[in-house]
């Protein structure tokens, strides 16, 4: 980077300065990312089935898109994915915020450090293993979930054997795995609140809610936006956990959109349709992201 050379008498910055800082990242993303994405776009316009490669891959215009838009399963799985997102996200945000506040509060240094590091553990557990762990935990006979609810007098429940239970079980595993993500992001937001401001505010008011609303919230909103966007994108891509835990079943109870796309793309190998599905999802994600940014993202100044 040419800006690396010290320029002793230089004060402002030139028009090209941002470019030098941005160029490496932009170039790398372009070089690695552009071809596969273009390929996917072109594929979505073709009949492209890998297990019929002898028939060639002719262009079919928007036929794949038409088919996807008219496919009830696509909409069903998309709706189910939305439901899943709406079930897990409030928990993850609320619990995440609570955890972050607990960890931010002074006192109990050792315990706080311990809890903070433990947050990394759910995130670090390989998703496919989380799914299997889920199968072990929610098993009707030898699962620990039933023993635990048994302590509270709730009768044994066949989690994975019925639609509602299986859906609840994948939600629980997701909340377990991703609440820490939210907590860590909130925590780094809290740590950005200038100390003087926070301390002054603490002296002024004893109310934690007031502190949160007026002082800390502005620093949390960017993180919240990040969370919503990243989690939306991730939920739309969520695959490993569900696949190893329920394989989308029983019935179609846990068939989320990505499980469906995987089935079209890598079981049926109809990559034309799968690409069209994925690109439609991309559009949905971008719209969602724009909406979040519009509503939540304000610069702290």
């Amino acid at each position: 980077m040419s800006t690396a050379r010290p320029r002793p008498f230089y004060t402002g910055y030139g028009r090209l300065t941002p470019l030098w800082f941005l160029a490496p990242a932009v170039l790398v993303l372009l070089v690695i990312g552009i071809y596969p994405t273009l390929f996917a776009v072109v594929t979505s316009l073709r009949r492209y089935n890998l297990t019929r490669s002898r028939d060639g891959f002719p262009f079919v215009g928007f036929a794949n898109y038409q088919q996807v838009l008219g496919d009830p399963t696509f909409w069903e799985t998309l709706g189910r994915t939305a439901k899943f997102f709406l079930c897990v996200m409030p928990f993850e945000v609320a619990l995440g915020l609570g955890v972050a506040l607990l960890l931010h509060q002074p006192g109990f240094r050792g315990l706080r450090a311990l809890a903070r590091v433990s947050l990394v553990v759910p995130l670090a557990t390989t998703y496919a293993v989380v799914g299997l762990l889920g199968r072990l935990i929610f098993n009707r006979d030898f699962g620990i979930a039933n023993s635990l609810i048994g302590l509270f007098g709730v009768p044994s429940f066949d989690w994975l054997g019925n639609s509602a239970g299986a859906f609840a079980a994948i939600c629980v595993m997701d909340v377990w795995q991703w609440t820490p993500f939210c907590a860590l992001i909130f925590l780094s937001g809290l740590s950005m609140v200038p100390v003087e401001i926070e301390e002054a505010a603490r002296l002024e008011t004893a109310s934690k809610t007031a502190l949160l609303r007026h002082v800390q919230l502005p620093y949390l909103l960017p993180g919240l936006t990040a969370m919503l966007i990243l989690r939306s994108a991730d939920v739309l891509k969520l695959f490993d956990v569900v696949f190893t835990m329920t394989r989308g079943g029983p019935g179609a109870a846990t068939e989320l959109i990505s499980v469906y796309i995987q089935r079209v793309g890598f079981r049926v190998f109809d990559l034309g349709t799968a690409s069209a599905q994925a690109l439609l999802l991309l559009v949905i994600t971008i719209i969602l992201a724009r909406v979040y940014i519009r509503f939540f993202y304000r610069e702290i100044e």
């Binding site: 996917a40 994108a233 695959f239 995987q262 994925a278 690109l279 992201a289």
Partner: peptide, 11 residues
């Protein structure tokens, strides 16, 4: 980060 890896995997 938005696009589904399933379709990028092939290219």
């Amino acid at each position: 980060r938005f696009i589904s890896p399933i379709v990028l995997a092939l290219p």
